[in-house]
Computed example of a mutant assay.
Amino acid sequence: MASDARIAKLLADIEFCHSAMLPGERLPLFAGPDRFGYVRPALAERLRALAPDIEISSAGVRMPRALLPRLNELAAALGIPTRAEDFDVRATPEGEVLGVLDRGALPSFGVIGVGVHLNGLVSRPEGPHLWVAKRAANKKLDPGKLDHLVAGGVPAGHTPFAALLKEAGEEAGLAADQARQAREVARFRYDMDRPEGLRRDLIHAYDLELPETFIPRPMDGEVEAFALWPLRQVKDALLDSDMFKFNVVLVLADLLLRRGLFAPDEAALLKTALYR
């Protein structure tokens, strides 16, 4: 694939993460003055059937704040598949916690989801390498896709860094004292239409330098295998294939930019698309 076409492909993958236009066909979802999500009109009507004090107008869907503790109950009554993991509900990523909602219901309600991704890096004489994970074939979302050494959501009541430490041990057998050396390098916000609904995500990206002696171990069944790739191989896979999970593309593009693996003209295009 020619160089220009390869960069165009990566730019399209980045733009794909910003595919949702808001509100678009959805209605803003409010609790009191706080807009915390977006729902499709048909779902709004079903919500009102469950809770008649919900108001629907062209300006949006308004529920009393007293309904916030019942979000999981409403999701279950609507038959939305759940994942037995609550996330904090906020109007903005840094705002106050309004309630909790099961992770599986976030896309249906258009609620912000916060996640963490870790670049597990190894310095070798021949150049920098990155640990790459292959997602298990039985994962509900993006089975078999390539992922980071550590990646996951931030559960209710956790800070992003606390979630990173938790996921590091659960997913890769990474000791807490090692994981604590990770440093945050970037954040990415995107609004994306996906088969499961509207993804309004914030990703906290971290770098961690690991010794050559560290070998990750699949611990919780979410990862099928790990492999240590030269960064050049990571770049080629990113430019020439769809092997990586959709949001991993953002974090890896940032990593490769920071490591100077793109020509100046390519880097300028990618920075404009990535850092918005």
Rank of each mutant, 00 (worst) to 15 (best):
V89D: 00
D193S: 13
A105Q: 03
L101T: 01
A133Y: 03
V122W: 02
G127K: 02
P195V: 10
G173L: 09
V97D: 07
V114K: 07
R183V: 14
G157V: 09
D147V: 08
L74Y: 00
D147W: 10
I80R: 01
G169E: 14
A156M: 12
V150G: 04
K134Q: 15
S108E: 09
P143W: 15
L71E: 00
L68V: 03
R189D: 13
S123P: 01
L141A: 13
L130Y: 11
P128M: 04
L174G: 04
R90K: 12
T82R: 15
Y190R: 09
V185Y: 12
A137E: 15
L68S: 02
A163L: 10
G95F: 12
L106Y: 07
A133D: 05
G104A: 04
D147K: 12
K145S: 13
G115E: 01
L174H: 03
K134E: 14
P81M: 08
P81C: 07
K166P: 07
D191A: 15
V89F: 00
G127A: 01
V111C: 05
D88W: 08
G173P: 07
A137F: 13
T82N: 08
V114W: 01
D147A: 13
W131R: 05
D142G: 11
G169N: 12
V116T: 09
A151M: 13
M192T: 10
L130N: 04
A75H: 00
I80F: 00
L118A: 05
F87W: 14
R135C: 08
T159H: 08
G79S: 07
V114A: 07
H129S: 08
W131L: 07
S123N: 12
R124P: 02
T159E: 11
A75P: 00
E85A: 12
H129R: 09
T92R: 13
N119G: 06
E184C: 12
L78K: 01
R90V: 03
A133P: 06
K134N: 04
E73C: 01
R187G: 07
G157L: 12
I112D: 02
G120S: 04
A75I: 00
F188K: 06
G113L: 08
A168Q: 05
S108H: 11
R180D: 08
P195G: 11
Q181E: 15
A136T: 11
A76R: 12
P81G: 09
P125F: 02
I112N: 02
G113K: 03
V122T: 05
G79Y: 06
L141C: 10
N119Y: 09
A75G: 00
F188M: 09
A168G: 10
P81K: 05
A151I: 11
G173F: 09
N138D: 15
A186P: 05
A133E: 05
E170M: 10
V89R: 00
R183E: 15
R103N: 12
H129E: 11
A175I: 10
G152L: 03
A163K: 01
P160Y: 02
A84R: 15
R70Q: 10
L74V: 03
L118H: 05
R187N: 13
P195I: 09
